[in-house]
Every structure is written in structure tokens, then in C-alpha cells.
Amino acid sequence: MAWQSKQREIGTAGWGWAIFAGIIAFIYFFPVLWIILTAFKTNADILAVPPKFFFTPTLENFVSVFSRSYIKGQAAVDTGFDRFFFNSIFIAGTSVLLALVIGTLAAYGFSRYPLPGNDTYLFIILTTRMLPPIIVIIPIFIMFRIAGLSGTYPGIILLYTAFNLPFTIWMMKSFFDELSPDVEDAARLDGSSEKRLFFKVCFPQIIAGLAATAVFGLILTWNEFIFALLLTGVETRTVPVAMAQTIGGDIGVRWGLLAAIETLFLIPVIIVVFVLQKHLLRGVTFGTIKR
């Protein structure tokens, strides 16, 4: 067939295209590469003109992230980035996990036991994500003040959970919709209770979807800035906020320190994507292949 002869095997695209793709990829990743390089440079190397690609690497910036304190006003303040990293991981992890648990159960309900006006409920849930955060931030800020949630872990976790829920419900519902209801009926006939058939039959089938949803949620939450800026306190501050605050200060912008923080900030995202990549691909392509 004519169309078959056009198909090539992987690896036979030719060197020209491979180099071209490599150049494009390099341009895309150059900022990331530059940040990583900067993180290993001394201050002199960072500010050198023309920029240096070859230099003696140093770990002093990374040491500074965790141990150097800086002077603010009269007092020495600990940079405390270990704390901020813990906060980011704890807050993002907990809220995504909560959103997955609640969202998956809700999605199963929406998919399998539709209420009258099911689509309306789903639409309303989605509308909570249509407003830009900056619009809802003031009422939320006031509500948190009154409820005493400002600056607390439960407060920010609750907010991020609510923030992740619509997306989780919509994603998970589409995965449940894809499952054959016959399979569930078969499990009922095989003697499974509704609870067991959810955990033993439905749940194992949507793990790929769960992984994909988790990755999107984690990245979104990990990078979130505005809510964190206004609703976390000194104790509960996350890395993006702390990073922004590092830019200011009395001794100018410390590029090396900032680059080191950013490099460290990238690592968890890369790990998560790497670990879940197999599921991620299946998750985002779920339902696109006709059975």
C-alpha cells in the first residue's frame, strides 16, 4: 500500500533531522540548563561578560540555600529553605492526595450513579476553576482570616485540595466513563459487593489515569504562587513564595543562591514525571484509541 511505504521505522529519520530536533530541543531547554549552570558558579562567574560556559564548579550556592543566614534590619534571619522545601512537598503532596481520594470517589458517583441534572453539577464544579485566582483571592483571604485558617497547614491544604478537585473529578470521570459497565455487572454476578467491585475491579483499571491526574495536580500545586503568597505564614511558606522574597533583601539579588533554589525546586517534578512516565503517557492517551 502507498501509505505503508511512507511509514518509517524509528531510527531511520536520518542524521539531518536528528540534529535539527536536537537544536530545537537545546533552544527549549537552554534556560533550564543556564539555571543549573548558574547554580554551580561563583558570583564572579555569574556576572562575567561574556557569559562563561566553562568554569570551576562550586557547591557554595547549595550550601547557602540551607545554612547561610542573612541580615534583615538588625537581626540575622535563617534562610530556612529546608523548611520551605518541606512545606512545599507536604502541602502539595497532601492536597493532591486528598483531591485524588475525594475526586475519584466523586467521579465514580457522577459516572455510575448520575443524578438528575448531573451535567449541571459537573459544570458548576468546573466554573470554580474558570475564575482567575486573583479574583477570588480577596473573599478567600477574608474567609480564612475569620476562620483562623490563614497561615496554617490545614488552611492552605484545604484550599489547594479545593483547587485541584474540579480537574480531578473531570479527569477521573472521563476515565470511569471509558470502563465497560458490563465488567462491573460481571463482578456483581461473581458475588462482589459494590464496595469490593469498586476497589477490586474499577480502581485497578484507572491507575494510569490516577497517575496522570496526580502529575498534573502536583505540578500545578507545586508551582502555585498567588494563594501561597497571601495565605501562608512564616511557618507554612512554600518555596515559590520564599524564592520571590529572596530576590529582594539588602544585599542585592543573589543569582547563585536563586539558581540553586530553582535547581533544587526542579528535582521533585522531574522525579515524579520520571517515575510515573509510563502511566502518564497511557493516562493522557486514555480513550483516544478505539477499542
Partner: peptide, 18 residues
């Protein structure tokens, strides 16, 4: 449904894919 002494084969087979 559960506990009836009957079994069913579905048109789609409805095997547990996982």
C-alpha cells in the same frame, strides 16, 4: 444480584482487563 446461583456470559465478554 450477588449470591444468585447463576452466571452470565456477556456479549462483550466483560473480562476483567487488569
Amino acid at each position: 444480584v450477588q449470591g444468585r446461583d447463576m452466571a452470565m456470559v456477556f456479549q462483550t465478554f466483560a473480562l476483567y482487563p487488569h
